[in-house]
Write a protein that binds this DNA or RNA. Structure first.
Length: 557
DNA sequence: CTTTTGGGCGCG
DNA sequence: AAAGCGCGCCCAAAAG
């Protein structure tokens, strides 16, 4: 298998040359193993090069873009990919995730080849218009440094032992292409019903607020003005965030929280989502960044399908509806971060609880409150749940106290301290694991998760930054291992289900969402469950990995 | 006028 | 001394 180097140029005359659905490919440049550069101008069909592209290793920079165009316009699928852009983020230990100005092709050309790529003027590639000599030069230029970049990255990958992580990312890339091309279907009628409901809620809250305040000469969306008004009413809030407001007992607080919630939902979700429905496909095609977070998690924009309301407005997700005749498969890992913590800490009680199917939150409650597990009530369990999750994030007693307070559970700082120390006494291995890993992270300024993913930290300049590294060191190995599981599953599911015409429509950190015909639903459900659990079992050795799957007409919470 | 920053909040 | 990890998007206010 000989590697090819690939790049494409697209028509930007509609000002939207990056949009796969409304722009066309003007040229495809391929640097062949022979060293020759082939430029396909204004291609009508790719039948001649399809086998070449589908059966060889294709190397390029940010190939998600190219792969989307090739797939959508010509039905060509890139299976075997090496992307210098993703590789560079992996090599940076996640430091380049979501950063601008460090991962562009020109940045890599300078870093590896010492050459400054001239910032040439927009070449104005137009579909159907023959290329000028300058345009041909420009097109070929994007390819000529790739072999050297590839070679040097390969050496670094080997040196750092990052082959496994790179492999995971490159196999996940075709799945991300599949994801972006699939898009989600939106039930606009349902959306409009919800819009009406919330508008009403907002108006009612707004009227009450004006009445209580005795004026409507205030911008309720201005934290500054709002705080001033609340202080004037004798409510000594230090800020206007929900958590602070919850500390005070005054009729205005309830209305204010109601107003802010409705305002947020209307402005951020209800009002915005319809703008993202693509006119060509009728679906919402968000942009996913494959390594959007330094943990290796994906991030998402325009719109961010990873932050669609579920707690604040449970019915919201039902607007994401299967097309007629289809079903939506929602699959998520059960308590995955706590299971990973159990695996990594090797804590006896934690591991045993998951092996015996004991409710871990109830178990924790029984430990910290010294009660038999059968006597644990809802409130005890809720406190324990906050502790279990908070521990994974490196929470301190002060944070626990605030978190519980926001949930309507009052504890003194002393009580919070007791709860945490009881937790560590009950799970000594969790305690020592977290202590050791945070020390190690701060000392080495880098960590590995169990999949070998490298996590680096910037050199801290002050105590605040040092504390931050200690907390991140507790959390990131866990968060990132979950990301690796999801990516491995994604890559394997792509190979099995994309050829069957199934759609991959969303992913939210520990969750995969697919759409398929009713007839396919049972089979798809089984495959997704099996692949997710298989990927999890690569790293959860001493306890089970469980993926929970639902089949429905809509995206389920 | 446009861009950046800060407070705030949606999700896992 | 700081006080919970990772993201993206909203608006208002400040800065350019």
């Amino acid at each position: 298998m000989s590697p090819l180097y690939l790049d494409i140029e697209t028509d930007n005359s509609n000002g939207n040359g990056l949009d796969v659905f409304s722009s066309k490919i003007v040229t495809i440049q391929i640097l062949l193993p022979s060293g020759e550069t082939e430029i396909l101008e204004n291609p009508k069909s790719l039948d001649k090069v399809k086998p070449l592209l589908e059966n060889n290793l294709v190397i390029g920079h940010n190939l998600k873009f190219d792969a989307k165009f090739l797939k959508y316009h010509f039905g060509v699928t890139l299976y075997n990919i090496y992307d210098t852009y993703l590789a560079e983020i992996v090599l940076s230990g996640g430091l380049y995730a979501g950063k601008r100005g460090v991962t562009g092709l020109s940045d890599l050309v300078f870093r590896y080849c010492g050459q400054r790529m001239s910032k040439e003027e927009q070449q104005g590639f137009r579909y159907g218009v023959p290329l000028t000599p300058e345009q041909k030069q420009y097109a070929a230029n994007d390819l000529k440094y790739l072999p050297e970049i590839f070679k040097q990255q390969q050496a670094k990958i080997k040196l750092l032992g990052l082959e496994g992580v790179i492999n995971t990312e490159m196999k996940a890339l075709p799945a991300v292409v599949w994801l972006e091309l699939s898009g989600m279907n939106v039930d606009l009628e349902r959306l409009n019903e919800i819009r009406k409901e919330i508008k009403l809620r907002k108006c009612e809250a707004e009227q009450s607020l004006y009445e209580i305040l005795g004026t409507n000469k205030i911008n309720l969306n201005s934290p500054r003005q709002l705080k001033q008004e609340l202080n004037r009413l004798g409510i000594p809030v230090e800020s206007t965030k929900a958590e602070e407001l919850a500390k005070f007992d005054h009729p205005i607080i309830k209305e204010l929280i109601e107003y802010k919630e409705a305002e947020k939902l209307l402005n951020t979700f209800v009002g915005k989502l319809p703008n993202f429905i693509n006119t060509k496909t009728g679906r919402v095609h968000a942009d996913f960044f494959q390594i959007g977070a330094k943990s290796g998690r994906l991030s998402c924009t325009k719109p961010n399908l990873q932050q669609q309301p579920s707690r604040t407005l449970p019915e919201w997700r039902t607007i994401f509806k299967a097309s007629s005749g289809n079903k939506i498969i929602t699959a998520d890992y059960s308590q995955i971060e706590l299971r990973i913590l159990a695996q990594m800490s090797q804590d006896k009680e934690y591991v045993q609880a998951y092996n015996e199917g004991t409710d871990l939150h109830a178990l924790t409650a029984s430990k910290i409150f010294h009660k038999p597990i059968t006597d644990i009530d809802k409130k005890d369990r809720s406190v324990a749940k906050t502790v279990n999750f908070g521990i994974v994030y490196g929470m301190w007693t002060y944070g626990l106290q605030k978190k519980l307070q926001a949930a309507g559970i009052e504890v003194t700082e002393n009580e919070a301290e007791c709860i945490i120390s009881e937790f560590y006494e009950a799970y000594p291995s969790v305690s020592s694991y977290l202590r050791d890993i945070s020390k190690q992270g701060l000392k080495n300024l880098e960590l590995r998760n169990n999949a070998g993913r490298l996590i680096k930290f910037e050199k801290p300049e002050d105590d605040k930054a040092r504390s931050s590294i200690k907390r991140e060191s507790k959390n990131l190995p866990i968060q990132s291992l979950c990301a690796d599981m999801v990516k491995i599953a994604m890559g394997n599911i792509f190979l099995k289900l994309e050829p069957k015409g199934v759609k991959f429509i969303n992913t939210v950190h520990d969750e995969l969402v697919l759409e398929c015909t009713e007839a396919q639903a049972d089979e798809v459900k089984e495959i997704v469950k099996t692949e997710m659990e298989k990927a999890g079992a690569l790293f959860l050795i001493d306890l089970p990995c469980v993926a929970e799957i639902t089949v429905s007409d809509t995206w389920e919470k």
